[in-house]
Amino acid sequence: MSSVYWLDPDKPDFPPLSAALQEPNGLLAVGGDLSPERLLAAYQSGIFPWYEDPQPVLWWSPDPRAVLFPNKVHVSRSLRKVLKRGELRVTVDTAFRRIISGCSTLDQSRTGTWITREMLNAYIQMHELGWAHSVEVWRDQTLVGGLYGIGIGRVFFGESMFSRESNASKIALVALCEKLQSLGVELIDCQVGNPHLFSMGAENISRQLFAEHLQRLIGTTPKPQQWGLS
């Protein structure tokens, strides 16, 4: 840990991605806060926070990086049948607090209570500012799954998803890809891949290529977007 860069609490600056450790893969910096300014600077640079209480904030940029191109999402035959039945309803940005709370207790891709109270409050603030978005999946009036992340320019930085019913998170991801394509978004950052994401079309690319995608897809002065109902 002594070789990791400690952030200046008064500046939202990060070291170059090349300074990230190989073990643990991608650990780049420690400290700082989860202010909107620092979070935006981090995501635009290809960096994300991931830590557990009582750790300080840990910042990561792993190599390789898992990504999903929205126009390449894989929808299996069985999932197509589920979608065709239309038993589950999808909304966008209607229950962000409930989605992030659901992810904090039913996260499928990581272990531990990594969505701390500090993170929960930070991403709710990002949602209120128009940067963070959610996709919700409902059976009647019951929330059964969904996902959330950060949208900057033509990139969506996925944070977490959950499912309380079979296929709910898959339906959320398919709906997200459809929404992103309608907005001209070309890339979903999946951070670290897992079998669930790879089965949906995610793939690994190098950290350098990921950084090149960000440079191309995020403008110099990105603005938050209001997604509204899908």
Rank of each mutant, 00 (worst) to 15 (best):
V4H: 02
W6L: 12
D8Q: 02
D10P: 00
K11N: 04
P12E: 01
P12W: 05
P12V: 07
P12D: 02
D13A: 06
P16L: 02
L17H: 00
S18R: 12
S18P: 00
A19N: 00
L21G: 00
Q22K: 15
Q22A: 13
E23F: 05
P24S: 01
N25G: 01
L27F: 04
L27R: 03
V30N: 00
G31H: 08
D33L: 09
D33V: 11
L34V: 08
R38K: 11
L40W: 12
A42N: 05
Q44S: 13
G46A: 08
I47T: 05
I47G: 01
F48D: 02
F48C: 03
P49S: 09
E52T: 15
D53V: 12
Q55S: 12
Q55V: 10
P56Y: 08
P56I: 13
V57E: 05
L58S: 04
L58M: 14
W59C: 04
W60Q: 07
W60P: 07
S61N: 09
D63H: 06
P64I: 13
V67K: 07
V67L: 11
L68A: 02
F69K: 14
P70G: 03
P70M: 09
N71W: 10
N71Y: 11
V73E: 01
V73L: 04
R80C: 02
R80L: 10
K81D: 11
V82Q: 06
L83G: 01
K84E: 15
G86I: 15
L88D: 03
V90K: 10
V90F: 07
V92H: 09
V92P: 00
T94S: 12
T94L: 13
F96S: 03
R98T: 09
G102I: 13
C103Y: 07
S104K: 14
S104I: 14
T105S: 10
D107A: 15
Q108E: 12
G112A: 09
T113E: 15
T113G: 10
M119L: 15
L120G: 10
A122I: 14
A122V: 14
M126H: 09
M126A: 11
H127F: 14
E128H: 15
G130K: 14
A132H: 07
A132E: 10
S134M: 10
S134W: 06
S134Y: 08
S134V: 11
E136Q: 14
E136D: 10
V137D: 04
W138G: 03
T142H: 08
T142Y: 01
V144K: 02
G145A: 06
G146M: 09
Y148Q: 08
G151C: 11
G151K: 06
G151A: 12
R154N: 11
V155T: 07
F156Y: 15
F157L: 10
E159V: 13
F162P: 03
F162I: 12
N167L: 00
N167I: 03
A168Q: 08
A168R: 05
K170H: 06
L173R: 03
C177H: 07
L183A: 05
G184F: 11
V185Q: 00
V185A: 04
D189V: 10
D189Y: 08
C190E: 04
V192D: 00
P195Y: 05
P195F: 04
H196V: 08
L197T: 01
L197M: 13
L197Y: 01
L197P: 01
N204P: 01
N204W: 05
I205Q: 02
Q208M: 05
F210L: 11
L214H: 04
L217S: 03
I218T: 06
P222S: 07
P224H: 11
W227H: 04
S230Y: 07
S230D: 05
